[in-house]
Each structure stands twice: as C-alpha cells, then as structure tokens.
Design a protein around this nucleic acid. Structure first.
Lengths: 201, 201
DNA sequence: TTATAACGTTACCAAAGGGTAACATACACT
DNA sequence: AGTGTATGTTACCCTTTGGTAACGTTATAA
C-alpha cells in the first residue's frame, strides 16, 4: 500500500516538475523565440541549473516534442468532444472553432502551433508535420459532414480546412489574454466571418 | 556622360547583387529558418565568402530589415493600386486579397511575413511591428469604406483586419507555387470564404 | 541504519557561428 | 599608365550555448 502510494507521489512530483518546465519553456519560446532562449534561461526559471533539466528532458528539442505531445492530446480531446455530438456539420465546425480559440490561451499549445514541423531532427520534424496533417484531416472531415448534410456550402474542403486552421493559429501571434480584445468578442467575430463572410447580401 | 553612365552601372550592379543576396537568404530562411541558416550558407549560395556579404549588409539581422523594406514597398504599392479604384469597399477588399495572395509566392515577402517583429535589436523589432500595424490599418480602412457604403456588413473592423491578414499570411507556411493547389483555385476559395462564409443560407 | 536510486550541483568541453583585421585584386577615372 | 576606391579573400577571434562528466546530497526501501 504505502509502497505504491510513495511511488505514485514520486512519479507525480516528477510529472509536475516536467510540466512546469514545459510551461515555462513554452512561454519563453513564445516571448523570445526558440533560439533566443537558452537552456540556462529555462533552468533559471525553475531555480535549478541546466544539467538538472536533462533529468527531465533528453535535449533542447525534446521540449518542443513534449509540448507537442501535450498539445495534440488536448486538441484531439477537444475535437473528440465536439465531433460526437448529434449536430449538423456546421454546428460541429462552430463548436470546434470555439473550442480551438479557447485553447489558444495556453502557452504550451501556442508553442506547439508556432514551432510545429520545425525540429532539426528530421524524424521529429516529419512526425510533427504528420501529426498536424492528421488534425487538419479531422477538421476536413467535419467540413465534409457539413457538406453532406448541406449545412455547409459545397467547397474545397481541403483548402478550407487549411485556411481555417491557419487563421485560427494566427491568433497565437497576437492574442493576449490580458489585452484589449475579449475572448468572447474574438470568438464571435471569427464565427461570424466563417459563418457568413463579410459581404452584405 | 560616360562618367554618370559608368557610375550607374556600378551602382546597379551593387543593387542587383544585394538583391540576389536578399532573395537567396530569404529562401534559405523560409526553408531552414533564420537561426539554422548561417552567413556562410548564404555566402556559399552567392559563390562568395562570408566577409563579402558585409560589403552589402551591415549584419545578419540587416538582411531581415532589408527584406522587410522591400516587402513593405511592394505590398504598399499593391494596396495603393487597389485602393484608388472607384469601387465599393467590398470590391476593393476583394482586389486586395487577390493582390496579396499573388505576392505570397515571392520569397522576400514570405520571409518578411514569417519574421516580422522578431529582430533581436529592439529598435528594429518595434519598428517592424509598427510597420505591420500600419499595413493592418490600411486594410482596416478598406473594411471601413465597405461598412460605410454598405457593401460589407457591420463588424469589428479591427479584429476582422487582423484575422484576414493572419489567414492570408498563413498561406506562406504551406503554399508552394509548384504544388498541387493552383493559385487561382486558392484565391477563389479564400475569396468565397471571406465573401460568403461557409454556411448555406 | 544503510545501500541505492533519484535529484541536483560545479566545472568543463567542443562546435558553431557572427563578426573583423589585414591583405589581394580588379576596375573606374584622371 | 597609374592611383584610389570598390570588391573579395584568408585567417582569425570570441562569445554563446548545447551537452556531459564527475561529484554531492536527499530520500526511499530493506
């Protein structure tokens, strides 16, 4: 009993520390960029020294990879939750957009969005690209559902999925949760744009 | 006469060489990223050595700045040409989008889009941000014209301008001029999305 | 209590890369 | 032709930084 308990505690602690590292690193990468952030910088945020980081990560790039894992998990979980609803394709897309914008305030996710596919390790880079393609594919499927049930107009679902993703990802570049633009208002505008465009009919 | 002629030739040559440097560097920055591209790499593309570059640029970051200058000039020229037409706000916006997508195939412009505001020199960075804000402002003005003449529905022009810009800039990340998606088709989809959204009325 | 694994530190290395000094050559202009 | 300036090169420096080795220290399990 106690054995297990204590093991869990230790593992939990470890996980939490890794989590803090990822969050801090992600924030620094967003603020100053990946290459302008040294491992010493990241270590200092944890009040540890650089070699300590290597107890939690394999190398610098591994931070990017671990952020990606976490980000993909959260994004996919969100998509799971919206896609299973018994709704029209358009409504599902609507929910997806809402959910995705909601995730954009998280530094780890922002970090992933900004750095995906940019790893120096080719294997990691192509894997990252593949991961994103799969996300894109899921959004494309949502659009296809909408086209089929006629809640979304007939369009090139591939291009549309990319465009939509890119415009949402662009938000990471400027949106500050403490800034002038309220998340609700932002969401409203995006939804209105995607939904009905800008033209007065 | 000949004096002037020869001077011009020399200056022209210089300008052209700088131009080649910028184009090659921009392409490399897009392919591998700014920090993964060394000045030696860039020099090699010109078949010169690194110190030679310093005859044309002040330092590495200066490449980014010079690319930005060139990009802004071209973008602003394009906006000038569409904004002066006697058309509705919506039509002007339409032309802007078309023109902007057309520019997205140019490496120097793509380089600027990807790296704007990221200079290490704070002065340069804030200037770059200011420059982009001004572009954004011009687009906002186009939207305002459309709202006023009722060709664009009433909306938050600030947010819309940013969203539009970001979605267009996102194109730089994936669009290859030799790829599957044709520029015309891409433009059509973007215009359709911005114009009427995805919803079937 | 004690052995062992987890966790952390100090001190260091090697490579990369931006930038420069000093020197060589080509070319324009008198 | 000859002189200065534009254009390049070789060789070098110096800082940054990712990564590691070797050495404590704390806490867990027997």
């Amino acid at each position: 009993m106690q054995v297990v308990q204590k093991n869990i505690t230790r593992e939990e602690k470890r996980k939490q520390k890794l989590d803090v590292i990822l969050r801090n690193a992600a924030k620094a990468f967003m603020d100053q960029g990946y290459y302008r952030t040294s491992l010493d910088d990241i270590a200092k945020m944890q009040n540890v020294t650089k070699p300590t980081l290597y107890y939690y990560i394999e190398n610098k790039e591994d931070i990017l990879i671990k952020c990606e894992e976490q980000a993909l998990l959260r994004i996919n979980t969100m998509i799971d939750s919206v896609i299973n609803a018994q709704k029209s394709g358009f409504e599902i897309l609507y929910d997806f957009i809402k959910g995705y914008i909601g995730l954009m305030t998280d530094d780890v996710i922002r970090c992933h969005v900004r750095h995906r596919g940019q790893m120096e390790n080719e294997q990691a880079a192509s894997n990252s690209i593949k991961n994103h393609k799969e996300l894109e594919y899921r959004v494309r499927e949502i659009i296809r559902i909408g086209i089929k049930d006629k809640s979304i107009r007939n369009c090139n679902s591939t291009i549309l999925a990319i465009l939509l993703f890119d415009s949402l990802n662009g938000i990471t570049g400027w949106y500050k949760s403490d800034g002038q633009v309220k998340e609700d208002e932002l969401t409203e505008e995006v939804l209105a744009l995607v939904s009905g465009g800008v033209r007065v009919v």
